[in-house]
Amino acid sequence: MPRPKKKRKVNNPPKMLGFKPFGIRFCETEHVVMQYEEYETVKLVIYDDLSQDEAADQMEVSRPTLTRIYNSALKKIGQAFVEGKSILIKGGDFEFEENWYKCKRCFKLIVEVDNDLKSDNCSSGDVHDLVNLNE
């Protein structure tokens, strides 16, 4: 019997829900779903310029596991880029370091600190939990 899959650590959620190709309506494109942990590997390795070993430590996974997740993310990005598909970022087997929410009106990210929601320039209070939204 295989051992249970370990949740990957994701520091912060992405600011957006995904990307779409320029010049094509979103409803007219096919979608590629990128999981949160795939987004995190691209952010850590490419954007933050960490080695795969450092990124694996930060996500609390082995280096070979990080490489598999990272290669899957690159394949999805390449497919979306070449075939003109939209990328949706959702789901996966992950957990955030903190409790994150997104405002349903202005789409700003909101973090929970000491059981209080903290956001810059958002007071609507109409929020949804990013973890439960993306399961």
Rank of each mutant, 00 (worst) to 15 (best):
L74G: 05
K6T: 04
V33K: 15
S86D: 05
E38D: 02
L44A: 06
N134D: 14
R68C: 04
S62Q: 07
G92L: 08
A73P: 02
E135D: 11
Q79G: 07
Y36Q: 13
A73H: 06
W100K: 02
I77F: 12
E28W: 07
V111L: 06
F26A: 11
A56R: 02
M34W: 08
H128K: 12
F81G: 10
F81Q: 13
L74H: 04
E95F: 13
K90Y: 02
N99M: 06
K76L: 02
P14Y: 03
E28N: 11
K5L: 12
R25Q: 11
S124H: 15
E28L: 06
S124K: 13
E60A: 06
K85Q: 10
L44Q: 09
V82G: 01
Y70R: 04
A73C: 07
K104D: 03
K6Y: 03
L17F: 11
C103G: 03
G78E: 11
E97G: 04
M34G: 08
L88N: 10
S119R: 11
R68D: 10
E54W: 00
N71A: 09
K85A: 02
N134F: 10
S123A: 01
K7G: 03
S72T: 06
Q35L: 14
Y47M: 14
S119F: 01
T67N: 13
E38G: 05
R105T: 08
L66Q: 02
T41P: 07
R63Q: 15
A80Y: 03
P2E: 13
Y70F: 15
G125K: 06
D114L: 10
Q58L: 10
I87L: 08
